[in-house]
């Protein structure tokens, strides 16, 4: 079996550096397998998050040779192994230790978004009638595994650190799922324009490119939400109408 070198970020809080580990590479191995092998035999205290090892839980996000990816779904055969494979934590979030970061921002930001509010049930037994095609539109967003790679790669968070003014692509997908939910009745458009900061997104589509679930984050979630904001607040005809009808909104 061939060997490969893994250049892994080791460190706590802010400080740290890369350390090289060599391990054997077997057929079909993914990056997370190599990490496990190194952890079991060379570095018992190497910190890493993982759960399902099948691309379904979104725990093992990291930057592999500089690209944000899931370690469990990145096969070693797709990486050049003649040079070291570099593994770093997601750089947008505060480091905890080694490959583990503090992703609590995402949980806090989600909690601020208005929860689901269904319309009254359609049937006396408390159920609703929904067409498959109406379900499918939102099901795309429900595929999200909350790996937060889209948040990691978004420059509004990564470069500009606007954590207090911008909820990030993951939570726009979450908001889109609620806004386009066939049963939902709540209105989140004012928040999108305000505290959620959708205006900061300038649709560079970096989030879409890294999504392991291949959700069309920009095209199917963010742009339609931006359109709702524009429709509501910036459409000149509607604005005029609101002035005359006295229904002016802020």
């Amino acid at each position: 079996m061939a060997e490969a070198t893994f250049r892994i970020w080791r460190g706590e809080k802010g400080s740290g550096g890369f350390r090289d580990y060599r391990t054997e590479v077997g057929p079909g191995m993914v990056v997370l397998d190599a990490i496990h092998e190194i952890q079991a035999t060379q570095a018992n205290d190497l910190a890493v998050r993982w759960n399902c090892k099948a691309g379904k839980c979104g725990s093992c996000s990291a930057e592999i040779n500089g690209s944000p990816r899931l370690m469990c779904m990145t096969r070693l055969s797709t990486l050049p192994l003649d040079k070291p494979v570099t593994l770093e934590p997601m750089r947008t979030f505060p480091p905890v230790k080694d490959l583990v970061t503090d992703v609590s921002f995402n949980y806090r930001a989600k909690k601020k978004i208005k929860p689901f509010q269904p319309r009254k049930p359609d049937r006396p037994d408390g159920t609703w009638t929904i067409a498959q095609q109406d379900v499918e539109r939102v099901q795309e967003f429900h595929k999200c595994i909350e790996c937060f790679l889209c948040q990691d790669v978004c420059h509004v968070l990564r470069e500009h650190h606007l954590y207090e003014q911008f909820i990030g692509p993951r939570l726009f997908v979450y908001t889109a799922a609620l806004e386009m939910h066939p049963l939902d009745t709540a209105d989140r458009v004012p928040e999108l324009r305000g505290p959620d900061g959708i205006g900061f997104c300038n649709i560079t589509k970096c989030c879409t490119k890294v999504c392991p679930e291949e959700i069309h984050i920009t095209d199917n979630a963010i742009i339609p939400l931006k359109e709702r904001v524009v429709d509501r607040f910036y459409d000149p005809v509607k604005r005029l109408f609101r002035v005359f009808s006295g229904s002016a909104r802020r």
């Binding site: 269904p118 159920t127 609703w128 067409a131 498959q132 379900v135 429900h142 609620l178 939910h181």
Partner: peptide, 13 residues
Amino acid sequence: EAWGALFDRTPDG
């Protein structure tokens, strides 16, 4: 479903 889950549907919804 009342809490927001979206299951696949029958032809009659």
